[in-house]
């Protein structure tokens, strides 16, 4: 691994200041960053270890809002009774990330801010990949098993985060700190697609960090669920995942269906959501919503399997919610 400067700030302000240097990268649990550095995928001259900052690993009820610090570990979120009770989809998603070892290292902030798992991006020799400031996407006419069926633009890598999918279904917000202070970004605009900027996956500037994730009271306590399909049942990234939530007893007031690993950002199945509103979760309604969730998918050469996977997972998720 190339040598780098290691820093361990004790405050958010200090961290942001340290991140303003060129090729400085934030370290949460390190489960993604270290792989990137070992393979020299992205130039890294300074590592800013955020774990020295106190008070960013909370999981608490903040006047009705579920507030989770960016440094809260995925394992702690998965086993939190507060999260399981208030936002079950998030607890389930956190519990399905990788392995116990990784969940005990990986943080919520890091899971949201991780880089893509595209096998071409992760191949150290493919230096012309867009994500590495190159000029070509191998997936468009190559092996596209892992890639986007919605929203690809030049680059077709998908966002791999399970918690992002769950939080999209829960209408969460992400609190971001930077040199100009703090801002709160709705999760729907936190992730950016390659048509905006193929070099990044989120709105985070290089000198910004996530400090907290907030799930609003409206989403709390309503039934929600997260399901994930991957070739291996554990220690694997999703090939397709779904986070779903319905608010309303008998008749659905609002429905949220977020799909993971099918698009460069968490993909909201807005047609299915609109279709569900005002209806009850009867079997035929669920079947139609599942079909609508895959509407508009444009698979590449080897990811068409994601289309039936989306339909199946949405059907399973809504069936699970109907049983609550």
């Amino acid at each position: 691994m190339k040598s780098f400067e290691y820093t361990r700030p004790t405050s958010v302000q200090e961290a942001v200041q340290l991140l303003s240097a060129q090729n400085a990268r934030a370290l949460g649990g390190g489960t993604d960053l270290l792989g990137i550095m070992k393979d020299a995928l992205l130039p890294t001259d300074r590592v800013v270890d955020l774990k020295g900052i106190q008070g960013l690993d909370h999981i608490k009820d903040d006047a009705g809002t579920l507030a989770i610090g960016a440094l809260a570990r995925l394992g702690d979120i998965a086993s939190s009774s507060l999260v399981s009770q208030k936002a079950p989809a998030l607890a389930q998603a956190a519990g399905l990330v990788a392995s116990p070892q990784i969940r005990n290292m990986g943080t919520l902030g890091g899971n949201l801010a991780q880089k893509v798992r595209c096998w071409y991006f992760r191949d150290a020799d493919r230096t012309d990949c867009y994500k590495r400031n190159g000029s070509y996407c191998y997936a468009v006419l190559g092996a596209s098993d892992l890639h986007a069926v919605f929203g690809g633009a030049a680059c077709f890598a998908v966002h791999p985060s399970d918690t992002a999918t769950a939080l999209s279904a829960l209408d969460a917000s992400v609190v971001v700190a930077g040199p100009k202070g703090q801002r709160t970004v709705p999760i729907a605009s936190f992730f950016v697609g390659p048509d905006t900027d193929y070099l990044r996956e989120t709105v985070l500037a290089p000198d910004e960090i996530i400090t907290e994730v907030r799930v609003p009271p409206g989403a709390l306590g309503a039934p929600s669920v997260f399901l994930k399909a991957a070739p291996r049942r554990s220690i694997d990234f999703a090939r397709t995942s779904v986070g779903a939530q319905v608010v309303g007893t008998n008749v659905i007031q609002t429905a949220r269906i977020a799909l993971g690993a099918v698009a460069p950002t968490p993909h909201r199945a807005t047609k299915a959501e609109a279709f569900l509103e005002g209806k009850s979760l009867a079997a035929d309604t669920i079947a139609q919503a599942a079909e609508l969730a895959a509407d508009g998918a444009k698979p590449l050469a080897s990811n068409a399997y994601k289309v039936p996977l989306i339909k199946g997972l949405v059907r399973q998720a809504l069936t699970a919610l109907a049983a609550r």
Binding site: S135, C137, V140, L141, G152, A153, A154, F156, P194, D195, Y198, K298
Partner: peptide, 13 residues
Amino acid sequence: CVGCLACEVNCST
């Protein structure tokens, strides 16, 4: 054309 949008994105960039 396979609609990959590389032309649009690279034009902008």
